[in-house]
């Protein structure tokens, strides 16, 4: 456990001491902010029209009109951005040669995997935390529902978990960071399970799906690391 913590702390320090966490965070917030602005402007326009049309006014909901599409957009941006965080996790150790020492220390493969996984997850959680800014801004002028907001964040976090585990896996099989990044980027199918969360519905099936997805790829990564020690 303390060995895992050591890796976790080192990885986290790497993210925040190097420029990459900040670059990724900035890009992420800029794109999300752009979408937020557009959605809000559009919602504003519709609201104006709704003043003349009471039937339309009843249909208007800030959650469905702004937040739900915003979280949909954020999930897509995550798919673009998270490979930037995961692609170097293991491939860089191999490429630069630091793996040679790392794997001759008395640590288990899981210490390495979970340490790196949790560190990336922490960076991601910080990124996601920053997007709370948008609903908070909305809260100043409107009254977004708390339930769907919370479930959306749960959904996004689970999606991030899945996505990072997959990125870690691709980083374990490829020495090439770019290949690892592109492979991770190519997987869009996991977005489907996010829909319920953004509507405020927490379905166990969706949770189980994401948890299994993450565990599966973490397990695959551990097999890849272990296979380096098999007789060939």
């Amino acid at each position: 456990m303390s060995k895992m913590t050591a890796i976790y702390r080192k990885e986290l320090a790497f993210f925040f001491n190097s420029i990459i966490a900040y670059v990724v965070l900035t890009i992420f917030l800029l794109i999300a902010g752009y979408f937020f602005y557009n959605l809000l402007a559009y919602f504003n326009l519709i609201s104006m029209q709704a003043m003349q049309n009471p039937y339309l006014a009843q249909q208007l909901s800030i959650t469905e009109g702004v937040l739900q599409p915003l979280f949909g957009n954020i999930s897509i941006i995550m798919l673009l951005i998270l490979p930037l965080l995961t692609m170097r996790l293991l491939s860089e150790e191999r490429k630069s040669g630091t793996a040679e020492l790392l794997f001759t220390y008395p640590i288990s493969d899981w210490d390495v995997l979970l340490g790196k996984y949790c560190a990336t997850l922490t960076v991601f959680a910080a990124m996601l935390g920053c997007t709370l800014l948008y609903p908070l801004l909305l809260g100043a002028y409107a009254d977004p529902e708390a339930g769907p907001l919370a479930s959306s964040y749960l959904g996004l976090f689970l999606l991030g978990m899945s996505y990072i585990s997959m990125g870690l896996f691709f980083s374990s099989i490829s020495e090439n960071q770019i290949v690892a990044g592109v492979l991770t980027f190519g997987q869009l199918s996991i977005l489907e399970h996010l829909d319920n969360f953004t509507k405020g519905v927490i379905d166990t099936n969706d949770i189980v799906y994401y948890v299994c997805f993450s565990s599966f790829f973490l397990f695959c990564s551990s097999r890849v690391l272990e296979s380096n020690r098999w007789r060939s």
Binding site: K3, A6, K10, S96, G97, T98, L101
Partner: peptide, 27 residues
């Protein structure tokens, strides 16, 4: 204790910080 031929270390750590990290990994 192993010293590889091409000693690759973590360039973003200080010497003392690196050795402390290795000490943790060595339990």
């Amino acid at each position: 204790g192993y010293m590889p031929e091409h000693v690759a270390l973590y360039n973003d750590l200080s010497v003392a910080g690196y050795l402390d990290f290795v000490g943790r990994l060595k339990g």
